[in-house]
Design a protein around this nucleic acid. Structure first.
Length: 409
RNA sequence: CGGGGCAUAGUGUAAUGGUUAACAUGCUCGCUUUGGGAGCGAGUGAUUCCCGGUUCGAAUCCGGGUGCCCCGACCA
């Protein structure tokens, strides 16, 4: 991609009225645009990051046998009434011109479960796992922290349907394992934290929390083992010894919740009457699980975790481009040649081919973009038949031959 | 929803009752220049958030509203 053709505009200064690192850096770097509080546009650069996140999620969920579908966001009131969720306070309600009332989906049990009702009748039809990646709407009393808490955001939601609790339990553990793998690939260290089940279940649920001072949840966890609880259920205090392993000490830290998995049981299958006939011919309610992963929030969390004063530092897995090729004056021929070679090798490269833009501005833009690898060519390097190679976030610059640089990439 | 802060050109700021709202940056044009947001010159760009009030006169004072950020409450 040539930067002269790419729709991108960075800001010379940080926008006022934003304090969180993810909002400041993503807005200034031209990744996103703020439409209103908690509502953002993903500009081409930011969309690339988001799509990379989605790609990893899709790969892992498809691999575990879940099928992707896409449900409506506009959900008729009648569906919400069946499950008694019409009066949920975070539900955005809209009317159409004929007086029909709708709720904008914040999760999709009400849409998916009736679909399953048309399909499932026997124990042979189970289990089933379906997911989507979709815009969600929540009437948050206070949107904040850029992409971390929005009124409109993007989430992957997976739902599983089982014949009994035992099958749900094993699937639940499987999802937890896959989630860990997804977050690892995303470059996001997460802690699996026990949390309250809210309306859904008296059992604990599990949250996937990224520990960072920028987080809005409070987590108590053990320094020595995997014990971790959200403050809403925690009975431990900071500094105490761990109730689980007895060795470690309890620590307290803030976290961003990037995922949450629930055993729904029959909370939705009962009111919607989703049932199946078991081997003996008896009717049983389907047992359900739901598993959320906030992809736009992941993008915000990644920035919070990995940035410096000049911009974002993306990991290769989610970076909008793999290489930023910067052409300075007097190196058009050399830059074009490298660009062509990288394209032939299917390297995802952003080529700053802008003429008349000063080196300093190009470097500043490059830092804002946070692309992991930078290649700089100039009259100097062209004369020496070499290029400069530099990793984002590192000081040292390597002067190497073009061939070596291309092979390195 | 309680509390606090802020609102002036695309962006960041200045102007505390008095001409035509200033500066930087951006953008356009010309020249020059090319290693960390370069230089010179000429342009462009404003409903000073909105409504009302006070005043000869309001970006500025008063009242009401809206929006944004932050703290708290809330939070599948």
């Amino acid at each position: 991609m040539k930067q002269s053709q790419f729709f991108i505009k960075t800001l010379r200064e940080f926008p006022k009225d934003e304090e969180s690192a993810n909002a400041r850096l993503l807005l200034r770097g031209g990744f996103i645009d703020k439409n209103s509080a908690g509502v953002y546009t993903y500009l081409p650069l930011g969309l690339r990051v988001l799509e990379n996140i989605h790609g990893i999620i899709r790969e892992e969920l498809n691999r575990m046998g879940a099928s992707e579908l896409f449900m409506p966001a506009l959900i008729s009131k009648k569906y919400w009434e069946v499950t008694s969720r019409w009066n949920t306070d975070i539900l955005y309600k809209v009317n159409d011109s004929s007086g029909q009332e709708y709720g904008l989906g914040f999760t999709h049990e009400e849409v998916l479960t009736p679909i399953l009702k048309k399909v499932i009748s026997s124990w042979r039809d189970l289990p089933v796992a379906l997911y989507q990646i979709q815009t969600k709407f929540r009437d948050e009393p206070r949107a904040r922290f850029g992409l971390v808490r929005g009124k409109e955001f993007i989430m992957k939601d997976l739902y599983s349907f089982h014949a009994d609790d035992k099958d749900l339990d094993s699937y639940y553990l499987k999802v937890a394992r896959v989630y860990k793998k997804i977050f690892k690939r995303l470059g996001l260290p997460v802690k699996v934290v026990e949390a309250s089940g809210g309306d859904f279940t008296s059992e604990y649920t599990h949250e996937f929390q990224v520990l960072t001072p920028a987080g809005e949840d409070t987590i108590f966890y053990c320094s020595g083992c995997d014990f971790a609880q959200n403050k809403e259920i925690a009975k431990v205090h900071e500094g105490e010894s761990c109730p689980l392993c007895k060795k470690g000490t309890i620590r307290k830290e803030s976290g961003i919740e990037v995922g949450n998995i629930f055993k729904l049981g029959t909370r939705f299958s009962k009111p919607i009457d989703l049932s199946y006939k078991d081997k003996s011919g008896a009717k049983n309610f389907v047992v359900m699980g739901s598993y959320g992963l906030g992809s736009s929030r992941v993008m915000g969390a990644l920035v919070e975790l990995s940035h410096d004063s000049a911009g974002v530092l993306w990991t290769p897995a989610v970076s909008p481009f793999q290489v930023h090729l910067i052409e300075l004056a007097g190196a058009r021929a050399q830059a074009s040649q490298i660009y062509g070679t990288l394209l032939k090798r299917d390297v995802n490269v952003l080529y700053d081919d802008r003429k008349g833009t000063s080196p300093g501005e190009k470097f500043a833009d490059s830092d804002l973009f946070g692309i992991p690898l930078r290649i700089v060519v100039s009259a100097k390097t062209a004369a020496a038949k070499k290029v400069e190679l530099k990793a984002r976030g590192e000081k040292n610059v390597r002067l190497i031959t073009i061939q070596k640089a291309i092979d390195y990439v």
